[in-house]
Amino acid sequence: MFEARLVQGSLLKKVQEALKDIVQEASWDCTSSGLSLQAMDGSHVSLVQLTLRADGFEKYRCDRNLAMGINMGSMSKILKCAGNDDVITLKAEDTSDRLELMFESPKGEKISNYEMKLMDLDCEQLGIPDQEYSCSIKMPSHEFARICRDLSQIGECVVITCTKDGVQFSAKGDMGSGTVKMSQNLGAEKEDDQVTIEMTEPVQLTFAIKYLNMFTKATSLSGSVCLSMSNDVPLVVEYKVEDMGHIKYFLAPKIED
């Protein structure tokens, strides 16, 4: 038996919104330590990894490890039926091919029950090496989203350059070019407004903005975002999911032909 009850159900709605544009089908892995998911987009350019720890749920039970094959479009449709203030409970029997979703309004006067068919998925799991990165940039998530949106009007690629002075995002295209530079700003009153840069070596990498824009669907989950980069390896874009986990997006860089 698997059962997970999340009082702040809106978190699950936001997580789903942050995943659905990148992956069409994914295996949600349930173990006694929590829920996790790892999936690549169809073109093998980006990968998303979600962790929601068991202790972040008000109730969590998982007697046997389960891999629930979920059509992300169906999951989105059903989670849209939950109100933002609803408590969400997920339930599945060990051998069932269905996931039950229950939405309770805060005062308990409305209870909705949905059942979603699960799929048999044969998912490749990738081993992501633990690695130290040359640059880690923490910045307000809305600023990152704004930069990606703005520069996507200029060109299809963004060059991210990180030095000890700051991080620069540049794009160029047929109509011209654009550059946005963010400098370290430790004096901001709110922690989420701070820009911090930890660097051991300068980094410059080029990425397809299209994917970065998809990652920014996670913006509402967290006030800040962390970009981790080293030369010649995939970028990591990480959003915390409150104190219960994270969504990490990996994106392969573009390379000179």
Binding site: V45, L126, C157, P234, A252, K254, D257
Partner: peptide
Amino acid sequence: VPKQNDLLNYFQVS
């Protein structure tokens, strides 16, 4: 023109 690299060049299938 830079070419899009593949994630499978970095991560092993486990």
